Amino acid sequence: MPVNSSTLNKVVAKFKNDLKYRQTYRNPQKNAGLLSRKVETISEERPVTQPSFVVAVDFDGTCVTHEFPKVGKDCPHAVDVLKEMVAAGAGIVLFTMRHGQYLDQAVSWFAERDIPLYGVQTNPTQARWTGSNKCYANVYIDDAALGCPLTQDESISKRPFVDWLEVDKLLRKHDWFMESIVS
């Protein structure tokens, strides 16, 4: 689905600003005044609705096949399952090793597929209650994670990638779609 380049540029610029904000204001205790003003500004521009659960998702080998620095092919069923998670109340946080223009490419991938991101590299609400650099999420989906279901299809990629049909089954089995786990 083609995306208007002006819209795409605005989306990328917004996430760059959010990322710059997170990199600048990592210590909520030290920057309490600045932090509270900045959070209010972000909330006015893009109200953050608390999702029922947060899913941190890697990019290469998870959403797309491994072809870094290029963006790989869509992993089968990734888009459908990600959209279903969002429809069920999940907030998706892009949590990847990509940075700079490569991170912009990953953010654009989500925008081009109409998958809204709740955050990039961090949960947007966590600065209110922690100074930790680790992204807070209820679930992490990453091809490098122990236990994450992988598949391999030589016609798509020489390296294994996330099996999104199995991820979907796991999420349903553990009722991640059914109950709110964020208090």
Rank of each mutant, 00 (worst) to 15 (best):
residue 25 Y to D: 08
residue 153 D to P: 07
residue 92 I to T: 03
residue 18 D to S: 06
residue 138 N to M: 03
residue 91 G to C: 03
residue 103 L to N: 04
residue 134 K to D: 15
residue 150 L to N: 07
residue 168 D to Y: 00
residue 22 R to E: 11
residue 149 P to G: 09
residue 25 Y to M: 10
residue 10 K to C: 12
residue 178 M to A: 11
residue 86 V to E: 07
residue 74 D to Y: 09
residue 80 D to V: 06
residue 102 Y to F: 14
residue 39 V to R: 01
residue 50 Q to A: 14
residue 39 V to L: 08
residue 99 H to G: 07
residue 70 K to G: 13
residue 22 R to P: 00
residue 178 M to S: 12
residue 96 T to P: 08
residue 115 I to F: 07
residue 33 G to Y: 10
residue 170 L to P: 01
residue 91 G to W: 01
residue 151 T to N: 08
residue 17 N to Y: 10
residue 178 M to L: 12
residue 76 P to W: 10
residue 42 I to N: 07
residue 155 S to H: 10
residue 80 D to E: 14
residue 82 L to I: 04
residue 75 C to V: 11
residue 44 E to L: 08
residue 170 L to I: 09
residue 147 G to V: 04
residue 55 V to K: 01
residue 171 L to V: 02
residue 159 R to A: 13
residue 90 A to Q: 09
residue 68 F to G: 10
residue 137 A to K: 03
residue 101 Q to V: 07
residue 75 C to P: 01
residue 69 P to Y: 12
residue 101 Q to F: 03
residue 1 M to S: 11
residue 128 R to D: 11
residue 146 L to H: 12
residue 150 L to P: 12
residue 55 V to P: 00
residue 92 I to C: 04
residue 148 C to H: 07
residue 151 T to R: 09
residue 118 Y to P: 01
residue 175 D to A: 13
residue 37 R to T: 15
residue 127 A to M: 09
residue 83 K to V: 01
residue 101 Q to Y: 05
residue 142 D to A: 01
residue 36 S to P: 11
residue 96 T to V: 02
residue 112 E to Q: 15
residue 103 L to G: 02
residue 154 E to L: 14
residue 135 C to N: 07
residue 157 S to Q: 06
residue 108 S to H: 03
residue 74 D to F: 10
residue 3 V to D: 01
residue 75 C to S: 09
residue 91 G to L: 00
residue 1 M to T: 05
residue 140 Y to Q: 01
residue 73 K to W: 12
residue 12 V to I: 15
residue 102 Y to N: 06
residue 61 G to V: 00
residue 56 A to D: 08
residue 25 Y to P: 05
residue 157 S to K: 02
residue 153 D to K: 03
residue 145 A to H: 04
residue 169 K to H: 07
residue 176 W to V: 02
residue 130 T to F: 13
residue 137 A to V: 00
residue 106 A to E: 06
residue 155 S to W: 09
residue 140 Y to G: 00
residue 75 C to E: 01
residue 80 D to P: 09
residue 156 I to Y: 10
residue 55 V to L: 06
residue 85 M to F: 08
residue 46 R to T: 11
residue 99 H to F: 15
residue 140 Y to L: 04
residue 169 K to M: 03
residue 53 F to N: 11
residue 112 E to P: 01
residue 145 A to Q: 07
residue 162 V to F: 00
residue 17 N to A: 13
residue 80 D to Y: 14
residue 48 V to P: 00
residue 77 H to S: 13
residue 7 T to L: 15
residue 102 Y to L: 07
residue 163 D to G: 10
residue 32 A to L: 04
residue 171 L to D: 02
residue 3 V to Q: 13
residue 61 G to C: 01
residue 47 P to S: 12
residue 59 F to W: 02
residue 38 K to Y: 13
residue 163 D to V: 06
residue 81 V to E: 02
residue 37 R to C: 12
residue 171 L to F: 06
residue 29 Q to N: 13
residue 5 S to N: 10
residue 37 R to W: 09
residue 72 G to H: 05
residue 101 Q to T: 10
residue 88 A to L: 00
residue 114 D to I: 00
residue 112 E to D: 05
residue 23 Q to E: 14
residue 179 E to T: 15
residue 1 M to F: 13
residue 150 L to C: 02
residue 155 S to I: 05
residue 47 P to M: 04
residue 42 I to E: 14
residue 111 A to Q: 02
residue 89 G to E: 15
residue 58 D to F: 09
residue 131 G to S: 10
residue 134 K to R: 15
